[in-house]
């Protein structure tokens, strides 16, 4: 046996409460906005997760529920989501680029009111043709800066031509600058020496079989 009950579950009746600070289970009065940026050679995607804390959720919901009927319609969700994405500032090598909303997922009203609902947005933008070498992508997000707290990160690129060489942010993570290198495109899919050798071997073997059957060998 690896483990044994030590300080057991029983005996909590004698727990002494030496706690002074108010305790809360989760984010309360802040609007957490977590951005994750994926860079490919020709495209940039931004995932944005927005989590309003329980104390400010009503004001965020009121922003979304523009007709005030206590329900978030698809049209209201779209309007809010597009507004958030349109508010992002993005540039590549100093040139402005405009991400478009690809997908949005709204939380249940009840979850949002309890401060546990997450608004999930996915946006992307096609990049202008870039030369090989160093580039710089900038993302700025100041949506509800009065109550917002921010996280902004580059994802490990799925595109092998991209190498992230640095990330810089301001203290509050409103702004993220990603330095990256774009490598030359290879012609066709990459094939290892092993695979090429094995391929030649198989083709040769098959050729021998075919020629044998035709009586050529």
């Amino acid at each position: 046996m690896n483990g044994r009950p030590g300080r057991a579950l029983v005996g909590l009746a004698v727990v002494c409460l030496g706690l002074a600070a108010p305790l809360r289970a989760h984010r309360v009065d802040e609007y957490l906005q977590a951005a994750r940026v994926s860079i490919a050679a020709d495209r940039v995607s931004v995932e944005l997760d927005l989590t309003p804390g329980v104390a400010i959720a009503p004001s965020i919901l009121a922003m979304i529920d523009t007709d005030g009927n206590g329900d978030i319609s698809a049209a209201e969700s779209d309007t809010y989501a597009r507004g958030v994405i349109d508010g992002l500032v993005m540039t590549v090598d100093g040139r402005p680029i405009r991400p478009r909303l690809d997908r949005r997922q709204m939380p249940e009203w009840r979850d949002a009111k309890e401060g546990t609902g997450v608004i999930r947005l996915l946006a992307s933008v096609t990049l202008p043709v870039l030369t090989e070498g160093s580039h710089q992508l900038f993302l700025g997000n100041t949506h509800r800066a009065d109550i917002g707290v921010y996280l902004a990160n580059a994802m490990v690129p799925a595109d092998r031509r991209i190498e992230i060489t640095g990330q810089r942010r301001d203290v509050a993570q409103h702004e993220l600058t990603i330095d990256y290198a774009l490598a030359r495109a290879t012609d066709g899919p990459a094939v290892s020496v092993w695979q090429a050798t094995a391929g030649i071997l198989i083709v040769t073997a098959l050729g021998v079989v075919v020629l044998r059957r035709r009586g050529g060998l």
Partner: peptide, 14 residues
């Protein structure tokens, strides 16, 4: 849980 965790891990969970 005592089997799948270490002694320290079990205590941490508790």
């Amino acid at each position: 849980m005592a089997v799948v965790l270490s002694r320290e891990g079990y205590q941490k969970a508790l």
